[in-house]
Simulated scan of single mutants.
Amino acid sequence: MRKFIILGLLAATVVPGVASAQSYGEVRRSERNLREEQRDLRQAQRYGDRRDVRDARRDVRDARQEVREDWRDYRRSHRDVYRAGNWRAPFRYSQWNVGAQLRPTYYNSRYYINDVNRYRLPRPGVNQRWVRHYNDVLLVNVRTGRVVTVHRGFCW
């Protein structure tokens, strides 16, 4: 009896680690599965009855949840990638709002985010750069110094 309890506790601690997404490939497979489920939903809406549509919607909802969980697990397991680099500035943290004007020291090339795909940020427009300010990410117009977009707490 005691062995079964120990084995049960051991299995309970091991299973969540196995189920979490550790690779980008697993996240991509989940996204592909979501697209397939959405295609099935469109087919059900076109040619199926109410029950088919209801089942397809449930499948899409479950697939979306799976994608969210896989991305969360991937980010959690690759957290050090986001923390890499010296993002601490020689100035204090300031909470910036959209429309604020920054001095050039706040958005110089040292704080640029060059690989926007890694952070899953949209591509910046002309004369705009993504800048990391402590744990926040700011989209700044580098010609005027104006803040266009703010994502607070983006980097843990």
Results as ranks from 00 to 15, higher is better:
residue 1 M to C: 02
residue 5 I to L: 13
residue 8 G to Q: 08
residue 9 L to G: 09
residue 10 L to Y: 04
residue 10 L to D: 02
residue 11 A to D: 06
residue 12 A to H: 08
residue 12 A to P: 09
residue 15 V to R: 03
residue 15 V to E: 01
residue 18 V to R: 00
residue 20 S to Y: 06
residue 21 A to G: 06
residue 23 S to N: 01
residue 24 Y to E: 08
residue 25 G to H: 00
residue 27 V to G: 03
residue 29 R to G: 11
residue 30 S to D: 08
residue 31 E to M: 01
residue 35 R to S: 02
residue 39 R to D: 05
residue 41 L to T: 04
residue 41 L to M: 03
residue 46 R to E: 12
residue 46 R to I: 03
residue 48 G to K: 10
residue 49 D to N: 15
residue 50 R to T: 13
residue 53 V to H: 05
residue 56 A to K: 14
residue 57 R to W: 01
residue 64 R to T: 06
residue 68 R to E: 15
residue 69 E to Q: 06
residue 69 E to W: 01
residue 70 D to R: 15
residue 71 W to R: 15
residue 71 W to C: 10
residue 73 D to H: 12
residue 76 R to P: 01
residue 78 H to R: 07
residue 81 V to L: 12
residue 82 Y to S: 02
residue 87 W to A: 02
residue 91 F to K: 07
residue 93 Y to H: 15
residue 96 W to R: 10
residue 96 W to C: 08
residue 96 W to T: 01
residue 97 N to E: 06
residue 101 Q to E: 00
residue 102 L to D: 11
residue 103 R to M: 14
residue 104 P to D: 12
residue 104 P to W: 08
residue 107 Y to G: 05
residue 110 R to H: 15
residue 111 Y to V: 13
residue 112 Y to E: 13
residue 117 N to F: 11
residue 120 R to W: 00
residue 120 R to C: 04
residue 122 P to L: 02
residue 125 G to H: 10
residue 127 N to I: 13
residue 127 N to M: 09
residue 129 R to S: 04
residue 129 R to L: 03
residue 131 V to S: 02
residue 131 V to W: 07
residue 136 D to V: 05
residue 137 V to Q: 05
residue 143 R to T: 05
residue 145 G to P: 14
residue 146 R to H: 11
residue 151 H to C: 03
residue 152 R to L: 09
residue 152 R to A: 12
residue 155 C to M: 14
residue 155 C to H: 11
